[in-house]
Design a protein around this nucleic acid. Sequence first.
DNA 1: GTCTATAAGATGATAGAC
DNA 2: GTCTATCATCTTATAGAC
Lengths: 232, 232
Amino acid sequence: MAEAVQKPKRAARPSADATRTRILEAAEKLFADRGFHGVTVREIAREADVDPALANYHFGSKEQLFSSALLARAEEFMAEREAALTACIADADGTPTLESVIVAYTHPYLEHAQSGDPGWRSWFKLLAKANTSPEWAPEVFRDRFDPFVRKFIEAMKLAAPGAPDERYYWCYHFFSGALVLTFAETGRMDRLSDGKCRSGDLASGYDLLVPFFAEGFESILSGRRPPLGGGA
Amino acid sequence: MAEAVQKPKRAARPSADATRTRILEAAEKLFADRGFHGVTVREIAREADVDPALANYHFGSKEQLFSSALLARAEEFMAEREAALTACIADADGTPTLESVIVAYTHPYLEHAQSGDPGWRSWFKLLAKANTSPEWAPEVFRDRFDPFVRKFIEAMKLAAPGAPDERYYWCYHFFSGALVLTFAETGRMDRLSDGKCRSGDLASGYDLLVPFFAEGFESILSGRRPPLGGGA
DNA sequence: GTCTATAAGATGATAGAC
DNA sequence: GTCTATCATCTTATAGAC
């Protein structure tokens, strides 16, 4: 105990912090698989091998636990991507290519998916579910995700300036739908292709996603391909 | 009663069929907004202004009710799209353009969204949620959606032949993620753009979506833009 | 076909002992 | 920090009266 006072080393006692982490990891996994309403606090506690009351003690309500799970990796993820985006713009003296902006935005997905920590893959599934049910953790979207998306859109304006404002938003919208679904690994493609393509082969998907969307963005933002009606 | 025997006209008595329909419409709306686990059978019955026991009587379990709601419009929707796809191929003597195939695949979304029946917009939201939680009604995906998607992919092969098989599947995957999210109208874009873009303005989105994806497909399937790694 | 009543069990949350 | 016990409520589903 005198030792602990002198040197407050973490994990001297495996309890409190470890418990929090175990609950958070269990919540991440189960919420990712079954969504907010598809999981009970008791199930999360059981998965974490922890008393049910501890979930409430450490995180408050079930809503707060969900937000905590979504937020846990959001900080790190957004910071990395923001750094990549800033570097990409600086490296190109303020006029990056569309492809380089897309790489900066998406490469952290691939890196984490391949990192060996399976928690990231769960978190991407969680993100996909939250993306079509934003009412589950609106403040996380508002405070953590949206500001970074706005920076991405500003970077697209540097890469392909002069298009009507709405086009940047719609193109981003298409892009995000595809990106989030890809890293959610729903397995649908595996069945559609009779096993010829695997959802889990994210490296192959990524290598196609980047040029696919670079070209889509380029054709719309440059005006090379006009909108169908000829309108906005 | 003698009349009813002679001429078994539908809706002579507004009860049975009307009740089924009311339950189905309420289920469609509530499941679309909150997902399978986010809604109780009692809430659906209350929304339909019907006794809770009738949901079980008419549809069986809650799972079956969800599947019925997803299936209800799927038949009509897929039949229309299949007809459009077949016509598009026939009109072009077997070599349609990529854009015309994309239009055949997507235009029924826009038509129904603008049809005045708000049930279709709910159903598109339901589809988006089911798309990231396919475990809620796997048989509907397997039996109704997947066969039609395979026909779409065959049509893409007619329009842009000769690419490695996996590219058709990945490109379809990107496309479907964007399409389904667009017609889910999550409202995210409205906030991101500070109201400059509205999720509900589906006509504008559609007019950009078609050329955006025509170009993405074209560039990848033709090999004009190679995959990042230079690989498959 | 509709509705009442109820079975049989799970749920989120907390108060209070340790 | 942890765990036991429990509250008040809600859940899906069905049996049986009308």
